[in-house]
Structures are given as C-alpha cells and as structure tokens.
Design a protein around this nucleic acid. Sequence first.
DNA 1: ACAAAAAACCTACTGCCTATCGGTTTTTAA
DNA 2: TTAAAAACCGATAGGCAGTAGGTTTTTTGT
Lengths: 131, 131
Amino acid sequence: MILGELEKRVLHYLWEAPEADAKQVHSALTKRKGGTLNTIQSTLDRLFKKNLLTRQKQGHAYYYRAKLDRKELIAQLIQDVTSDFINKGEDSLIAAFTSVSAGLDDEKLSQLEILIQQQRHRLSKEDSDAH
Amino acid sequence: MILGELEKRVLHYLWEAPEADAKQVHSALTKRKGGTLNTIQSTLDRLFKKNLLTRQKQGHAYYYRAKLDRKELIAQLIQDVTSDFINKGEDSLIAAFTSVSAGLDDEKLSQLEILIQQQRHRLSKEDSDAH
DNA sequence: ACAAAAAACCTACTGCCTATCGGTTTTTAA
DNA sequence: TTAAAAACCGATAGGCAGTAGGTTTTTTGT
C-alpha cells in the first residue's frame, strides 16, 4: 500500500475529525496551499477504494470516516512493507519486532516491556468481558 | 523508500550471495522469467544510488554487496513508513511497536519478551566488549 | 414541479518511479 | 591494438498520486 502526501494529510485530519465530507476536508487542508475541492474528492475516493475509509450519505454529501485508527494503520503498513522480506513460517510482525529491537537501547526496551504488560492486561480484560 | 519487485529480488539474492556482479545476479534471477543483463545493471545501479548496495571494482566488473542485512532493511522500511504518522516527541520505533503489539496474542507477547531479553544480553555484551 | 445549487462522476494530463532494453563509450585483457 | 566485456546514456512503457475541467446526477428551496 502506497500513500501519497495528500492522502496522509487527509487521514490525519480524519483521525481528529470523527467524520467529515469533502467540503470540510477541503477547507481544512487548503488553508495555505491551493487545491480544488475536486482534488480532495478524488483523494477521498482513492482512499475509499483502498479500503481505508468508509462513507455514507448524510443529507446531500458523503461523510467519510477512517476505517483504521492511526495505530491500526501503522500496523497495517508495517505488515505490507515487511511481508516481502519475511521467510515462510516466520511471523511477519514478530520478525519486524526483532528487526526493530536491534536498534533500541535499554530504556526503550523497558518501555516495551511496559507496553507488553499493558497489552496483557487488555487481553485478560477482554477475556473476562466475554463472560 | 519504495522498492520494486525486481529490486526486492535482487536484495534477496545479495543476502544469500555475499557479493556478486551483474552477470551473476542476472543469471540467478532470470531462470524462468526474461530480462536482459542491462535490466539487472540498471536495477543494481538504482539500488546503489538508493544507498542500499555498496560496490567495488574487482577485475573487470563491479561487485555489489548489500549495505544492510535483511533485518536492518526491515527496520529501515518500518521507520520510513511510520515516520509520517508519528507525533512529535514520540519515538518512531516505540510507536510502531505499540501499534503492532495491539494485534498480538499471549503467546506472541511472550515471544516478544524473550526477544527483549536477548536484546538486553546483546547490549550488555557490547558494553563489556567495549573495555 | 422545477430550476438552481451542490455533489458525484468521468476523463485527462502531469510528474515521479520501476522495469526494460537498444545503442554507444569506456575499460579490460589476450 | 583490437575484440570482448562492462559501464553508461537515453528512451519507452506502465503504474500511481495529484490536480482539475467538464458533465451528469442528486438535492433542495421556492
């Protein structure tokens, strides 16, 4: 998945906005820089076709929402960009972790351990919620 | 950093090969599929200009080597693809970890903890080696 | 119901990048 | 010193983002 600069800016905007139509996105993203409403419409449409946005008519216009939040998209992009380099049987995300961890210092490793603990808590909470 | 299919195949080859000239890469990568030696030369040159390969004349031809190993490249690509989505002050790699860990189950979290321990050992070994 | 306004849709062009390869110059080696 | 090998140059094709003009469809106010 390749994302252009404008596409990224639109996503950023939609992570703040809950939802928005082309007009809103346009006026928000073209304060200094130029660009017509059509450009924004095309970009929203391309993101929709990439399955990164949902949309639904509300009144007159489509209202778009981000399908993935920021972290989910990051995880997706990491999958995309790493999958070609992961050997069969190897888990793509674990392998990516392995690659990245090689550049981390002690403090960051500790941060990671905390994140792992938080994730465990999240998992056990999900489990009890399921009852 | 965007890598095309052929570029990826060349990198894969050079991770196995230690080093190789265009001729070797060409005969290795064009068993079934077509492609001239020139195509491989261009691809090697593009990778060289992207700073992903080193090269040096040995006898008649350039011999190319991968500048980054597989995991280093993966880490680099993750940096590239995530940096646009990381908020200022946030560490790009930690943030990427955070994103990815959200999709991991208990077993994978344990694998991660093991990786973190291994990385710690590597760090302390480096430290003692520095003496 | 109808006309004006708004939005969606189609189409096309530019720019950038990869893949491809023909042809020319430079380098190497017999 | 020339014939072969390699490097280098240039050109084309295909794909995708960004951009926007123009047309059709939808919505809405009167």
